[in-house]
Nucleic acid binder design. Structure first.
Lengths: 225, 225
DNA sequence: TTTGAGATTTAGGGCCATCTAACCCTAAAT
DNA sequence: ATTTAGGGTTAGATGGCCCTAAATCTCAAA
């Protein structure tokens, strides 16, 4: 009824929408999915015709409610799988993303339900990202902010580390940047790189802005303004 | 590198080859995969070109060694998944086939290995079918025979119930026809239907020949000739 | 030995998701 | 108000997998 690829586009648009508040541009989707922009344009035609996106030519798209529901379903599958793989199949935090990406389109509702049961209906995946509920109601925005919005001296608690790519996640995991960990921001370099110290590991990590952008944190307890 | 669909064709050819000893005909593959024969012909062209099948035009195909290796990999995935789903996700014997069919093409080698570990390197799936080993060496033919080759009065032990379709499997499970169960053949009707009594359930089952053909059994202990 | 029923292949077309090349629109800078 | 750089869309092609219709082959029966 709805191809894997279409699901991928809807999921990509959903995730880009979580970050910007603006209409999502063709080029952003193209980059996210690693295809060319004409390919995106023609897919947007189809998605619009099917009622999954609202479109203004030359000005990008937003998801309709139906589009968002589909995206939430895919995201739910993805995050449940990530949680299941780490909890029951001994996968490492950093490795689960690709496996989940391949499986998310191919599991039944029954499988989804059984996995959720086995995990006790979790609400957060191993990267700290919220798992959409089974009714697929749009969750509200998490109130964490990107670590890039803080300054030298701030103490923050990691809430979520977006699951983009295994190498980056491995690096972060190796240096103790995981959901729940407290970080003190040591330096913000002029070109955007952030250096932080983890309270647990007595070591500091440097995060180029592209990486830092995907680390969401809440203000920590120690330095309350 | 090799599409899901190609894998499906190789798996289908493999499974048909287990049953016949002869070259596999276009029409048999078409029926197995529910596509038309011209579709099969053109896929066979591609598979031949890629070296996965030996072909004689108008006379069917056989798998090459490489083709068989691919098929064994897919079958291994399928049967490991079936075993995992029944053991760890509470699936019923009869339900696992379709789920495994969708997932078998989308799991990594890593996933395969972890599932095999979690199950303790099983050699048989829940339907009694052998799971190809990780090295993908062709297993020898099982020596069980189809229940259709026995006669009234024979006592047999079920070894394998092919996992074709959920409804049939449910019926069999409901009537106690499962791997390991002993059956006494009560009647062989002239049109091929077999009626048997399970020692455990004190009940008899009737199996039309199309169903019976997929129940493999070994001669039982009680009436030794 | 011929023939014809039934199976197989060839021919030609469609849909999907992708690409490159060429054209067009938008918005910011002058 | 004009220009222009950059991104978006259109046009046209490709490869994968499927189809129907037509041509061709095989094999067993007459």
């Amino acid at each position: 009824m709805l191809s894997d690829v279409m699901e991928d586009y809807l999921k990509a648009i959903y995730q880009l929408q979580r970050e910007t508040d603006e209409r999502i541009k063709t080029s952003a989707i193209a980059e996210e999915l690693d295809v060319t922009s004409p390919t995106v344009t023609s897919m947007l035609d189809k998605l619009e015709e099917r009622g999954f996106v609202d479109r203004e030519k030359y000005r990008g798209v937003t998801l309709t409610d139906e589009g968002e529901t589909v995206a939430l379903e895919v995201v739910r599958h993805h995050r449940l799988l990530e949680a299941y793989l780490t909890e029951h199949l001994d996968y490492d935090w950093a490795e689960v993303h690709e496996e989940a990406d391949r499986l998310e389109h191919h599991i039944s509702e029954d499988f989804e339900a059984r996995v959720a049961d086995a995990l006790g209906q979790p609400t957060v995946d191993p990267h700290g990202s919220p798992i959409p509920s089974a009714d697929l109601e749009p969750p509200e925005r998490p109130d964490g902010k990107s670590v890039t919005e803080f300054e030298e001296g701030d103490v923050v608690v990691v809430e979520e580390v977006a699951d983009r790519d295994a190498d980056v996640l491995s690096y972060l995991a190796d240096h103790g940047v995981e959901p729940g960990v407290e970080l003190e921001i040591v330096e913000v370099a002029p070109f955007g790189m952030i250096t932080a110290r983890s309270s647990e590991h007595d070591e500091s990590v440097s995060l180029p802005d592209t990486v830092a952008h995907h680390v969401r944190v809440a203000r920590g307890a120690e330095i309350e303004q």
